[in-house]
Computed example of a mutant assay.
Amino acid sequence: MLATALTGRRCHLVLGARVLPAAFHAWVATGDGTPVGDDEAGGHDHPWTPVYTTP
């Protein structure tokens, strides 16, 4: 996130959660909401629901 901000690009820190098994996770998303980096198994085995996104 710091590298993105230093290059002048807009990004957001997203905090999310899942129900089973209960867990929390944080990730960086671009200005349009696209997650940055690779999701674990394409995000299919551990679906994360965004709870809070920084402005």
Results as ranks from 00 to 15, higher is better:
residue 1 M to S: 12
residue 1 M to Q: 08
residue 2 L to S: 14
residue 2 L to D: 14
residue 3 A to P: 01
residue 3 A to F: 08
residue 4 T to V: 10
residue 4 T to P: 00
residue 4 T to N: 04
residue 5 A to G: 10
residue 5 A to Y: 12
residue 5 A to P: 00
residue 8 G to R: 15
residue 8 G to T: 11
residue 8 G to H: 14
residue 8 G to C: 10
residue 8 G to E: 09
residue 9 R to H: 13
residue 9 R to D: 12
residue 9 R to Q: 14
residue 9 R to P: 01
residue 10 R to T: 14
residue 10 R to S: 15
residue 10 R to A: 13
residue 11 C to P: 07
residue 11 C to H: 11
residue 11 C to F: 04
residue 11 C to E: 11
residue 12 H to G: 07
residue 13 L to Q: 08
residue 13 L to P: 04
residue 13 L to V: 14
residue 13 L to C: 06
residue 14 V to D: 03
residue 14 V to H: 03
residue 14 V to S: 03
residue 16 G to F: 00
residue 16 G to W: 00
residue 17 A to G: 10
residue 17 A to N: 04
residue 17 A to K: 05
residue 17 A to R: 07
residue 18 R to C: 05
residue 18 R to P: 05
residue 18 R to Y: 06
residue 18 R to N: 11
residue 18 R to L: 03
residue 19 V to W: 06
residue 19 V to N: 05
residue 19 V to S: 09
residue 20 L to K: 11
residue 20 L to I: 04
residue 20 L to H: 08
residue 20 L to V: 08
residue 20 L to R: 12
residue 21 P to V: 01
residue 21 P to S: 03
residue 21 P to H: 02
residue 22 A to F: 09
residue 22 A to S: 06
residue 22 A to V: 06
residue 23 A to F: 02
residue 23 A to M: 01
residue 24 F to L: 02
residue 25 H to C: 02
residue 25 H to W: 01
residue 25 H to V: 01
residue 25 H to R: 01
residue 26 A to T: 09
residue 26 A to H: 02
residue 27 W to K: 03
residue 27 W to H: 08
residue 27 W to C: 05
residue 28 V to Y: 00
residue 28 V to K: 00
residue 29 A to F: 01
residue 29 A to P: 04
residue 29 A to L: 01
residue 30 T to G: 10
residue 31 G to I: 01
residue 31 G to E: 08
residue 31 G to M: 02
residue 31 G to L: 04
residue 32 D to K: 11
residue 32 D to S: 14
residue 32 D to A: 13
residue 32 D to E: 08
residue 33 G to D: 05
residue 33 G to P: 03
residue 34 T to V: 10
residue 34 T to H: 08
residue 34 T to D: 07
residue 34 T to K: 12
residue 35 P to K: 07
residue 35 P to H: 09
residue 35 P to D: 13
residue 36 V to F: 01
residue 36 V to A: 08
residue 37 G to Q: 05
residue 37 G to W: 00
residue 38 D to Q: 11
residue 39 D to W: 10
residue 39 D to R: 15
residue 39 D to E: 13
residue 40 E to C: 06
residue 40 E to D: 06
residue 40 E to S: 04
residue 40 E to W: 15
residue 43 G to C: 03
residue 44 H to V: 12
residue 44 H to Y: 09
residue 44 H to Q: 10
residue 46 H to D: 10
residue 46 H to R: 09
residue 47 P to Q: 10
residue 48 W to F: 05
residue 48 W to R: 06
residue 48 W to P: 02
residue 49 T to I: 11
residue 50 P to Q: 06
residue 50 P to I: 06
residue 50 P to L: 05
residue 50 P to G: 10
residue 50 P to S: 09
residue 51 V to G: 10
residue 51 V to D: 07
residue 51 V to N: 09
residue 51 V to H: 13
residue 51 V to Q: 15
residue 52 Y to I: 15
residue 52 Y to F: 15
residue 53 T to M: 08
residue 53 T to G: 06
residue 53 T to I: 11
residue 54 T to C: 08
residue 54 T to F: 09
residue 54 T to K: 12
residue 54 T to A: 15
residue 55 P to G: 14
residue 55 P to Y: 13
residue 55 P to M: 12
